[in-house]
């Protein structure tokens, strides 16, 4: 009966709410500190610049949210960014028309994503292992393609798209992000596919026993993840105007941190894009603030690593503290009658 609603679940719901509340609070604190240090910090121009610095990772984080809610993980995205950039740059270098080179790069992302998906969905290997192997393999392929050179001869139109504003102050990547964010939000919260993503993440068996094609959903997710990673890789190369074999190395750390800090459970089944967007804003502004405080980019990465751990550790500690408190309260309550006896 609904009246007997389990309080633990109620608490969990409240907790989820308060996690996003916590993020909001954190964001406000970061913003206040930063804007007190720098005038016009909150101006559109400044925030756009912030976004642009991490826009490729942010776009991938949108997709990664789906993957993690589904109960999987994709560690290979940063390598795929590199592979797409390398494919595009190398093909253009040897004289393939620029449009075709870009298409081939995106195609490579699709194929590699589908390759990951095949092993996870159809063979049933853990995605952690498959995409770890993917991380190594795809990065290895970039080395094969580009070796230890740097390619800066990219199509001119691509450089323009990557570096110049397209509409108002917004370059293509940012506009793409806005569009993808809206699409992702609608798909995850309101579409049948989004429902399947959650259901599989909550309980794969229930999904299978209800006639949901679990393998198809996972296959689509990994393929899409590969495609989005490739797209971001091309955008990244376009923005930088060059690429090397180590392009985008280690970006998976930023991306996964954005998703997990946003309150998405690493075990799947819960979380929302709202939280992820909040955590993206926090990470961007935090990084910027650290930059303002003259912390090196390297140290910033260390802090992101710490943030990743804390985003899982803090809820864990809070939960166990809550449980301990509840136990103590119960013990107190039950002690009294025992004394009466």
């Amino acid at each position: 009966m609904a009246r007997e609603s389990s309080p633990t679940l109620q608490r969990l719901v409240n907790w989820l709410k308060s996690w996003e509340g916590l993020l909001l609070g954190l964001l406000i604190v970061v913003l206040i500190i930063n804007s007190s240090a720098v005038p016009a910090y909150l101006s559109v121009g400044n925030q756009v610049n912030l976004f642009i610095l991490y826009i490729e990772r942010i776009i991938i984080a949108l997709m990664m949210t789906f993957v993690i809610i589904n109960g999987e993980i994709d560690l290979s995205v940063a390598s795929l960014m590199g592979l797409a950039a390398g494919t595009m740059a190398r093909l253009y270098e040897v004289g393939v028309p620029s449009g075709l080179a870009v298409a081939a790069a995106l195609g490579a992302g699709l194929v590699c994503g589908a390759f990951n998906g095949f092993w996870v969905a159809f063979v049933g290997l853990p995605s952690l292992v498959v995409t770890l192997a993917g991380l190594i393999t795809y990065r290895g392929l970039v080395w094969v393609l580009v070796e230890d050179r740097s390619i800066s001869n990219l199509p001119g139109w691509l450089n323009d798209l990557g570096q110049k504003p397209l509409v108002g102050p917004f370059p293509l990547a940012l506009i793409l992000f806005f569009v993808l964010a809206v699409v992702a939000f609608i798909v995850l919260q309101y579409s049948g596919f989004g429902r399947y993503v959650y259901v599989i993440g909550i309980n794969r068996d229930v999904a299978r026993y209800s006639g949901v094609d679990v393998r198809r959903v996972k296959m689509i997710l990994f393929t899409a993840s590969g495609f989005i990673a490739a797209l971001s890789g091309v955008l990244y190369a376009a923005r930088l105007g060059a690429m090397r074999s180590s392009t985008a190395e280690g970006f998976e750390l930023d991306i996964i941190t954005m998703v997990l800090l946003g309150g998405v459970s690493i075990f799947g089944g819960s979380g929302s894009l709202r939280g992820v967007l909040l955590s993206i804003l926090i990470i961007l502004n935090l990084r910027n603030g650290m930059g303002l405080a003259y912390l090196s980019a390297n140290l910033q990465t260390g802090v992101i690593g710490l943030l990743l751990i804390l985003s899982v550790l803090v809820p864990n500690l809070a939960r166990s503290a809550q449980a301990r408190l509840a136990r103590r309260r119960l013990a107190l309550r039950t002690m009294q009658p025992a004394e009466e006896v």
Partner: peptide
């Protein structure tokens, strides 16, 4: 859940 496809509109939304 098993009949979700019956509840989708043209855009795949529930």
């Amino acid at each position: 859940l098993p009949t979700l496809s019956n509840y989708l509109n043209g855009l795949g939304l529930i």
